[in-house]
Amino acid sequence: MKNFIYLLLIFILVSCSIEKYPAIPKGATVVILGDSLSYGTGASEGEDYPNLLAKTTGWQIINAGIPGNTSADGLERLPRLLTAHRPKLLVVALGGNDFLQRLPSSETTANLKAILEQAKTQGITAVLVAVPELSPLKAAVGSLSDHPLYKKIAEETATPLVKNVFSEVLSDNSLKADQVHPNASGYGVVSGQMFEALKKLGFAG
């Protein structure tokens, strides 16, 4: 009985530790600021995860993913996107190209923090999506993990973090079109896991 109560208390504490955010209503505008992973490289038109997520949530999702974009490119594009769309939610999924180009992590961190700060100053809620750390060895054995800078940024900026989605998908060869992009099935998994993460945070119903 004591063990049961102990386990119950742990479950309650873990459940309470997930902060809940106001729900984003159906029809609301959501911007996903990203690179080729958001654009949908590796799959056919309409099979990208922002399009799939829009169907699940009922949100009007603007896919602002541009292949090759770095965090600096995303930061440069952000003001126009926020002005044009005034989203209820900004999903930030950048950094992969920074890692591929071996840019200093300090620059990536500064750019991502600036993106999140811009959204905050305009009263727009932002979510950060973690991207895998560049590791050919881990990729070869199917055990990619999120780059640690995302957890640190999320903690330092009090930003909700979507973890392990791309790391898990890109660790599975059956879900990849190439070494750094999911295929159509992979984007389906990304969309599903993204929805579940946003649901736990309270954004999606």
Rank of each mutant, 00 (worst) to 15 (best):
M1Y: 11
K2I: 15
K2Q: 14
F4S: 08
Y6N: 12
I18N: 00
E19H: 11
K20V: 10
K20L: 11
P22T: 05
P25K: 03
K26F: 06
G34Y: 00
G34F: 00
G40S: 09
T41Q: 11
G42L: 01
G42C: 02
A43I: 02
S44C: 07
E45H: 12
L52C: 05
I62V: 13
A72T: 06
H85T: 06
L89R: 02
V91K: 00
A93E: 15
L100F: 11
L103P: 06
L112T: 00
A114W: 00
L116W: 03
E117C: 06
T121S: 15
G123C: 14
T125K: 15
V131Y: 04
P132F: 04
P132L: 07
S135A: 12
A140F: 04
G142L: 12
L144D: 08
L144Y: 09
S145N: 13
S145F: 05
D146R: 01
H147T: 11
P148C: 14
E155M: 06
T159R: 09
K163T: 13
F166H: 06
V169M: 08
L170Y: 08
L175H: 02
L175M: 13
A177V: 09
Q179D: 13
Q179L: 12
A184W: 06
G192A: 11
Q193E: 15
M194A: 11
K200P: 04
G202D: 08
